[in-house]
Simulated assay, not measured.
Amino acid sequence: MNFPSKLIENAVEEISKLPGIGKKTALRLALHLLKRDEKQTLSLSEALVAMRSKTRYCRQCHNISDDELCGICTGNRREQGVICVVEDTRDVLAIENTSQYKGLYHVLGGIISPLEGVGPNDLNIESLVQRISGNTEVKEVILGLSPTMEGDTTAFYLTKRLKPFDVKITTIARGIPIGGDLEYADEITLGRSIVSRIVFE
């Protein structure tokens, strides 16, 4: 791709490093930013720099936060006795958007993946163990991890680590999505759905 300016080329190179953005989209975005009022482009760049340099992580659950403790951990209406363990902040946002969960979270910061060199010590597992061992109020830990090989490995490891404590360990339901056709479901999902069947109400 030929660029009329080295400055445009550098901008396109950086923008195209973002996930899901190729060179053509990056060029379109760069040219759009160039056409915008300079104040708007500066506001965008300042917001990105501030996000990168000032964002903190909650010392209790490791979710993204503006303060030492996030709004969920300090929320008065949250169920203190239930902790949902998730891989990252995107999972917290997805669950929060359902408006069905009122407990607390614990963000692992990834999942165990030997192929990618990620082990238990690379995740926020020790802080979860400490959080539960020093808190008799916690009655249930929900493993809200993706139903993949790595997710199941992480869930198995967490179950072993949390076994000594008097907490109920559950996992999010897995099965056929609402509106899905059985013929398109893979064998593992369909098998799990049959094994974990529920009473029809």
Rank of each mutant, 00 (worst) to 15 (best):
R77K: 14
K160V: 05
T41H: 11
Y57G: 02
I188Y: 06
V199R: 12
S16F: 14
V118F: 02
N76H: 12
G110T: 12
M51E: 09
V129D: 02
T98K: 15
Y105C: 09
R161S: 01
D66T: 12
L27V: 10
A26G: 09
G109W: 08
S196H: 10
I111Q: 14
E183Y: 10
D122E: 05
P19D: 03
R36L: 15
V49C: 02
T153S: 13
T89D: 09
L48C: 10
D181S: 15
N76P: 00
G119S: 07
E183A: 10
R90G: 01
F200R: 14
E150I: 04
V129I: 12
I198N: 10
Y101L: 11
A30C: 14
T89Q: 07
K24W: 07
V49R: 14
L18Y: 02
I142K: 01
L34G: 05
L190Q: 02
I169K: 00
L128G: 01
N124H: 08
E96A: 11
H32Y: 13
N135C: 08
E38H: 08
L33M: 15
L158Y: 00
V107E: 00
T154C: 14
T41M: 12
C70S: 08
L27K: 15
P120A: 01
L42R: 15
A47Q: 10
E46W: 05
T55K: 09
H106K: 00
D166A: 13
T136Y: 02
M1R: 07
V82H: 06
F200C: 07
G175R: 09
H106Y: 06
A94G: 03
E46A: 14
F165C: 00
K54D: 06
G175I: 12
I8A: 15
V85C: 01
I72Y: 08
G75L: 12
K139D: 00
D88F: 14
T55I: 11
M1V: 05
I83A: 00
I176H: 09
I15E: 04
Q40C: 02
G110E: 13
G75H: 12
T170A: 07
C61L: 09
H62C: 05
R28M: 13
I142R: 03
